[in-house]
């Protein structure tokens, strides 16, 4: 099954962590992606720019409205994702929990809808 691991954390953390810790997390994250590739779980992964750079758009009666920022004001925002292939939720949860950023934030593990056939 495919699972999307949504990596969330407080976007002020990179600036408030002790020096070196953030750099280490970034390094660990890159290594973890490679490890998932080696083990055949990796499909895709990206890190996102800060929520301050987000714009939320809606289409209503054919007209677009746009607002500054993410659609919900939460302390912990989506900061990146890893799309994985896993045998079941147990394996997906293990992979999600070992994402280095889960140590400072959280990871939402969501199954990807599959079309039967």
């Amino acid at each position: 099954m495919k699972y999307l691991c949504l990596v969330c954390f407080d976007s002020t953390l990179p600036d408030t962590l002790p020096p070196g810790e953030w750099a280490q997390l970034v390094k660990d994250s890159a290594e973890y992606d490679l490890e998932l590739q080696r083990r055949g779980h990796f499909i895709a992964a990206e890190a996102l720019m800060s929520p301050a750079n987000a714009t939320t758009v809606r289409m209503r009666q054919g007209k677009m409205s746009a607002t500054d920022g993410p659609f919900a004001e939460l302390k912990e925002q989506v900061a990146g994702f890893i799309l994985i292939e896993a045998a079941d939720l147990n394996e997906a949860m293990r992979i999600g929990a070992n994402i280095p950023l889960a140590r400072i934030g959280c990871v939402e593990v969501r199954p990807v809808m599959s079309v039967q056939g």
């Binding site: 099954m1 699972y3 896993a86 045998a87 079941d88 939720l89 147990n90 997906a92 293990r94 199954p111």
Partner: peptide, 14 residues
């Protein structure tokens, strides 16, 4: 069913 919760006894590590 949908999230793929398996029907297994967890491995020794968990």
């Amino acid at each position: 069913r949908d999230a793929g919760i398996p029907y297994v006894v967890p491995g020794p590590d968990e």
